[in-house]
Nucleic acid binder design. Structure first.
Lengths: 191, 191
DNA sequence: TATTTTTCTTAAACTAGTTTATTTTTTCTG
DNA sequence: CAGAAAAAATAAACTAGTTTAAGAAAAATA
C-alpha cells in the first residue's frame, strides 16, 4: 500500500499541503510503479501513446536513432524528475531506456491530463521542459562541444559521473572519439 | 473599434463558436495592437516580463546574440502564428525583431494566463511549441546543414522566399558563407 | 582472480564548417 | 534611373569534428 509514498510526497510538495484521501486514490489509480532493468528499453521510435515517467530511483535517457543507426541523446532524467515524449499520444521519434536500474512511476497522457485538470500543474511541467530545451538548443547552436562540456560539468557534475562518456558525447552532439580528444587535451593542460 | 477583428476571429476559431460580448471586451482589453517597422527591435536580451505576440501581418524573428556578437535565429513566426519567450516573465536571453513591417497583437503573460482560464489553450500552445523545438533540436543534432536546408525548403518554402539568406543560415546554425557554398554547389549539380 | 566484455584513448586521414577579405549582384532610396 | 547600401558569391587558409581502426584500461562476470 505505502508503495506510492514517493509520488504522493511529490504531489504534496507541489500542492504545498497534504493530499486528500480521494486525491491519494486518484494518484494510486493513475500511476503504475515499475522497475526497469539497466539497458531495458521502455519505448521505441514509432510507438504511439507513450507514457510519462517520474523517477523515484535511477537514471533514464531519451534518444533518437538516425538513419545510419547512430544514437543522439536528447534528454536525461534522474531522481524526482520527469521524462517522456510530450508529443504523446502521437507516434514518437524517440527511444527511452534506463542507464541505471530504475524505479519509476508511469502515467498515461490521458490520466496525466485528468490529474492536471484537477491540479493544473502540467502547465508548469511543460513550460519548464520547454525552457530547458530552448537553452539546450541555444547552447548547441552557439557553443563548441568543448564549451558545452564545460558547462555540463558545472551545471550537472552528477550526470558526468553517472553516465558513460559516450552518452555524454552523444548528448553534446559529437562523437565519443572527439570528446575523448577534448578531455585528454584538457588533462594535459593542467600541468 | 473593429480593429481587433483578426484576433477575435482567431479566438472564435479556437473556441469553435462566436465569442460573447464580455469575451470580446476581455480580448480588446488585454491585447494591444501594434505596428512594427522593419528591423525594429521589440524586446532584447536582459528584458524582463516580455509579452506574447500574435501576428496579423508580417514576419518576426527571435534570436540570441553570442559573446562575439553573432546572431543565431531561434524561431520565426508569420501570419496567424504566436511568438515570444515562454520563459517570461523571467529575464529573457532573446531578441525579437521584425524581418518585415508587421502588425501584431501583443499581450502580457499575466493577461495571457487570465484569458486562458482553463489553461487548455495555453497548454496547447506551449505543447505545440515544445514539439516544434524538439524537432528542431533533433534536426540540428542529426543532420548536416545541407540536409536541414533541404528540409526547410520542403517544409517551409515560404520562409525561404521571405527571408534573406543570412537569416536562414543563422537559423540552420551555420555561416552565410557556408550556406552560399551549399547553394552554389547544388545549382551547379542541376546541370 | 583470470577472462571476457565494455569503455576509453590514440592516431591518421578526412569532411563540414569558419574566418577574413574581395568582388559581384541585388535592392533601396533620393 | 543613378548612386548608395545591403545581400550574396567566391576564394583561400584555417579549425572543429568524423571515420575507421587498433590498442589500453576499466568494469563485469565466471
Amino acid at each position: 500500500m505505502e508503495n506510492f509514498e514517493v509520488i504522493i510526497r511529490y504531489y504534496e510538495k507541489i500542492y504545498g499541503r497534504p493530499v486528500t484521501v480521494s486525491e491519494k486514490d486518484l494518484i494510486q489509480g493513475s500511476f503504475r510503479k515499475e522497475t526497469i532493468r539497466k539497458k531495458e528499453i521502455i519505448f521505441r521510435g514509432g510507438d504511439s501513446n507513450t507514457r510519462h515517467y517520474f523517477i523515484e530511483k535511477g537514471l533514464l535517457r531519451m534518444y533518437v536513432i538516425d538513419s545510419a543507426g547512430k544514437e543522439f541523446n536528447i534528454l536525461f532524467a534522474r531522481e524526482y524528475q520527469w521524462i517522456g515524449d510530450l508529443a504523446t499520444p502521437s507516434e514518437t521519434l524517440f527511444y527511452l531506456d534506463a542507464v541505471e536500474k530504475s524505479v519509476v512511476y508511469s502515467i498515461s497522457d490521458e490520466n496525466m491530463n485528468k490529474l492536471t485538470n484537477d491540479f493544473s500543474m502540467f502547465v508548469k511541467y511543460i513550460k519548464k521542459s520547454y525552457i530547458f530545451l530552448q537553452k539546450r538548443l541555444v547552447s548547441i547552436l552557439i557553443n563548441t562541444a568543448e564549451e558545452n562540456y564545460k558547462q555540463l560539468v558545472e551545471q550537472s557534475p552528477e550526470l558526468i559521473s553517472r553516465l558513460p562518456q559516450y552518452h555524454i558525447s552523444s548528448y553534446l552532439g559529437v562523437t565519443s572519439v572527439f570528446l575523448s580528444k577534448i578531455l585528454s587535451k584538457n588533462a594535459r593542460n593542467k600541468y
